[in-house]
Amino acid sequence: MTPAVRSSRPMVAAGGAVLLLALGLVALMVVRPSSSAGSTGSAASAAAPSDTSVDAGFARDMSIHHQQAVEMSFIVRDRTSDVAVRRLAYDIINTQANQRGMMLGWLEMWGRPKSSGAPPMAWMGHTVAPRGDGSLMPGMATDTELDALRSAKGRDAEVRYLKLMTAHHRAGAEMAQAAADVAGTEEIRNLAAGMVRGQQSEIALMADMLEERGSTA
């Protein structure tokens, strides 16, 4: 399930660097069995979640979701000089690029593909109908909305970004809560729970920022 999302060169470079770092960190956490156990594989492979697990499904879908949040943040960073909005965009770029790298790193260590033919969010026990126009999952902006953000400047760009990111975070937090509740690995449960807290906090912050700009989500 590869998203048709246009990415800036800085995002690609940053994402690649984060993925390499995440792979290194995940590799350090792998505990290999002793030779006396007679196993020829790693403990990580033996305990790896299945391809249809909540863990693998969440890691794939949330990686796609995060990729768009990072892209939108790069866009607004270059469309406004507002310090508060640029700071928020910078925080989202760093946080979600790092989390995306961790999830892709776990998929790599588990020996699971980073894309799947399964419908989006099937791991949650239900499927969703994409909005179309590039929006693959709930909360994701359409290509038309992204183009409008690219064309906007100043206060208009700020309001568009805050509205799009609020919708993005609300859907992302719902996905993350589902994974925090039922994922099989501690890594995914902990990461997902942290996402819920972080995104709910940013939703409240963005509500205040929209109000300051005479708008609402």
Rank of each mutant, 00 (worst) to 15 (best):
A22N: 03
E174A: 08
A173Q: 02
I64D: 00
G139I: 00
R60C: 06
R100A: 09
P3L: 03
E71G: 04
D133G: 06
A13R: 15
V76N: 06
A141E: 01
L23T: 08
A69F: 04
P130I: 06
T185G: 04
N190D: 09
M124N: 10
T40C: 07
G105D: 08
V196T: 08
S7V: 15
A141F: 03
E186W: 11
A207E: 14
D78V: 00
G184P: 07
G125K: 11
Q96T: 03
V54R: 12
L20T: 14
T144E: 11
L191R: 04
Q96P: 10
I93N: 08
S115K: 09
T52F: 06
R86K: 15
L205C: 04
S53A: 12
D78E: 15
L191M: 13
S50H: 03
V182K: 13
P138G: 08
T216Q: 12
G125A: 03
L107H: 01
R155V: 08
W110Y: 03
R79N: 12
A192Y: 01
A217G: 11
G214D: 02
M165P: 09
S63E: 07
R9W: 13
N190W: 02
Q99T: 07
M29K: 01
Q99A: 09
A37I: 10
P10M: 06
H169F: 02
G154T: 01
A46N: 10
M195R: 10
A179G: 11
G194R: 10
M109K: 10
E187S: 11
R79M: 03
W106H: 09
G57Y: 11
P120H: 03
D181C: 02
K153I: 02
A118I: 05
R150Q: 07
I188T: 14
S50N: 00
Q96E: 10
M209Q: 14
G105Y: 06
L205D: 13
T52V: 10
A89K: 13
V159S: 03
K153C: 01
A157F: 00
T216D: 11
P130D: 04
S34G: 14
A217Q: 04
A141V: 03
D133Q: 10
L146S: 07
A192E: 02
T216A: 15
M72L: 15
Q177I: 02
R6G: 11
Q199I: 05
R197G: 12
M124A: 14
K114W: 01
Y161C: 09
A56M: 05
G15I: 01
A178L: 06
A84D: 14
M140I: 06
A118F: 06
Q67K: 08
M165L: 03
Q199A: 07
P130A: 07
S53D: 13
I64C: 00
R160H: 14
W110I: 01
L21R: 09
A193C: 05
L104R: 09
A89P: 12
S151A: 15
R131A: 13
A44W: 02
A69Y: 04
D55L: 04
E145A: 11
S45M: 01
